[in-house]
Design a protein around this nucleic acid. Structure first.
Lengths: 167, 167
DNA sequence: TAGACTCGCTTCGAATTCGAAGCAAGTAGG
DNA sequence: CCTACTTGCTTCGAATTCGAAGCGAGTCTA
């Protein structure tokens, strides 16, 4: 029987599968380390990391959800936990009464500082052990444009709503 | 204050973040397509794809769990659903009465054939649109060794148990 | 400024995920 | 053969995830 034409060739398929496997395995290893080191999940860790990167340590809920690629309701849940643990603060935005801003606390920063070395250790060993410095540069140069390309599509959290009342 | 030494340099960090973001965004896009096209999740799709690749269409539960990077109990749940839907079959292994083998059915193959074109479309557009053919080759050449390196560590499903009754 | 829409977030219920514990089968040492 | 350990899978409860629905605030247009 005639094979249907493929829009993905074997080389691409290999890259795609490897990407999925690597990210799955990496995520698993990371999750283990974070759990042992500081009772964190990867999602909560990512929330804190993202906040820590901004000048004020603050981000809106929606931007946070888009950044770490999680549903809005999922983020509400996780930020609730982080707030209860005293690692972040929630406050209404001064600009827009609809928005909620999340801010990392000193305790949050301290926790990150505590787990980060171990985290980097895992990433270095699992992901970068088989890669040279140049390989890492190449990998970044390949994946960053892909990320930007994917981000250019309507952002994740808005996609569902946008599809409903379609254009 | 003195910065602690980092085991991950900025370039590596960029590659790492891009990898996480890309895999998250890609997975989301895939999940959308599979849901619309055939009421499949990515996990169930992966199960069927893995089975389809083997000569007999059969794999043991444990091997399947390791392959798609999911917990054993999670796989039990998903295979249960697939079996109920008639897409796979479960049978005790002839070699080892402890093992359960999972086999893809004709219906399973048919479903994959039905959703695969759309799936490849998504992967082509989301992941490979910004990458040349050579880029794809490079990406595979980078990630496949990483995958093999990660797989060389004790396989995921055995990790917990192995840690309990330590080395 | 009223009406209609959009936007940001939370709440809700359902589905999925994990790890711990349990059970049955296999294996090794004495 | 018996005991102890390992292995493969499932069951269970708890945690996490999502999308749909709801609510209040903002925006645009006639």
């Amino acid at each position: 029987m005639p094979e249907p034409p493929h829009s993905v060739d074997p080389v691409q398929l290999g890259a795609y599968f490897a990407l999925i496997e690597v990210s799955g395995l990496l995520r698993y290893a990371i999750e283990q380390q974070l759990g042992e080191a500081g009772d964190l999940t990867f999602v909560r860790f990512q929330v804190l990391m993202r906040l820590r990167r901004t000048p004020t340590g603050t981000l809106r809920m929606t931007d946070l959800a888009d950044a770490i690629v999680v549903s809005r309701s999922g983020l509400t849940y996780q930020v609730g936990l982080l707030e209860k643990a005293g690692l972040v603060t929630r406050a209404p935005s001064p600009d827009d009464d609809r928005s909620v801003t999340v801010t990392i606390t000193d305790a949050g920063r301290a926790l990150i500082a505590e787990v980060l070395p171990g985290h980097e250790e895992v990433v270095a060993q699992q992901l970068f052990e088989p890669l040279s410095r140049d390989d890492a540069r190449t990998l970044a140069a390949l994946l960053e444009p892909v990320r930007d390309h994917m981000r250019a599509a309507p952002p994740r959290s808005a996609a569902a709503r946008r599809r409903r009342n379609a254009p």
